[in-house]
């Protein structure tokens, strides 16, 4: 316990400007975390780690597309922590004075082409997405992943015609897994989470934008101590290890 706390302290101080660290005993009780859908598996694992580090704490998660979460927060949903999959949505939260303190990048993610298990269409890069025999789908324009995907495609100079604009990344992955679509662009972490049902085709770093995940304490938090403790934990070695176990990369 003490060792963890020291580690957390080290991690936090390494990141620069931070609220005062909190003592573990105050971090107990219910904690409501609103997190981007792509964080689902990683945050569930992080929650287990957090609970172990803070006995008596009880984190619960609400996973959805980042814009949906933002709408819910704007409508006054009770949350303590908001973890966004992109900068613009977090900025909207800041502008609406929904969060306390400066949001912090706690992880980054990379894009990957998701294809059917075993890559039956032999897709080797972004250029193949424009092939006539490849049924390509992507996310709706306001979903962060779609924006990153657009950047990647622009960098590669490819203009594929999507057949569907899915409501979120999971929609793309599941339709590819079902074989209804041949390919889509999603996060590395999504491909990893659906391993076995889909395969991933790497996108070269030069064309691959880094998606930064930001986290912030909600201004109207019911349990601000636990909120800060959770953010601290995410940035700690233990939290980072949990995230990287699911394919996320450090900030």
């Amino acid at each position: 316990m003490r060792r963890f706390f020291l580690l957390a302290l080290a991690a936090v101080s390494a990141c620069g400007s931070v609220p005062a660290p909190v003592s573990p005993d105050k971090a107990g009780g219910d904690l409501s975390v609103f997190a981007a859908a792509s964080l689902t598996e990683a945050f569930k694992a992080a929650g287990t780690g957090f609970k172990a580090a803070h006995p008596g704490s009880n984190p619960t998660f609400n996973f959805a597309g980042t814009p949906t979460l933002l709408t819910q927060l704007l409508q006054g949903a009770g949350a303590d922590v908001f973890a966004s999959a992109d900068q613009p949505n977090m900025q909207k939260a800041v502008d609406a004075k929904l969060v306390a303190g400066a949001p912090r990048v706690f992880a980054t993610n990379k894009l990957e082409i998701v294809v059917g298990a075993g890559n039956p269409k032999h897709i080797s890069g972004l250029a193949d997405l424009a092939r006539a025999d490849v049924l390509y789908i992507t996310e709706a324009p306001d979903v962060p992943a779609a924006k990153y995907a657009a950047q990647a495609l622009a960098a590669a100079g490819v203009k594929p015609a999507p057949r569907s604009l899915e409501a979120d990344v999971k929609g793309v992955v599941s339709k590819v897994a079902l074989g209804e679509a041949d390919a889509g662009i999603v996060y590395v972490t999504d491909v990893r989470a659906a391993r076995g049902r889909v395969s991933g085709v790497a996108i070269p770093d030069a064309q691959n934008p880094r998606a930064g995940y930001l986290v912030a304490e909600v201004r109207a938090a019911h349990n601000p101590y636990a909120a800060r403790a959770f953010i601290d934990y995410l940035l700690s070695a233990g939290g980072q290890q949990a995230l990287q176990g699911f394919g996320f990369t450090p900030p």
């Binding site: 569907s164 604009l165 899915e166 929609g171």
Partner: peptide, 13 residues
């Protein structure tokens, strides 16, 4: 609809 037909303006949206 969104599950079976997906979402594309003018075609399935």
């Amino acid at each position: 609809t969104i599950t079976f037909a997906g979402n594309f303006p003018g075609r399935t949206q």
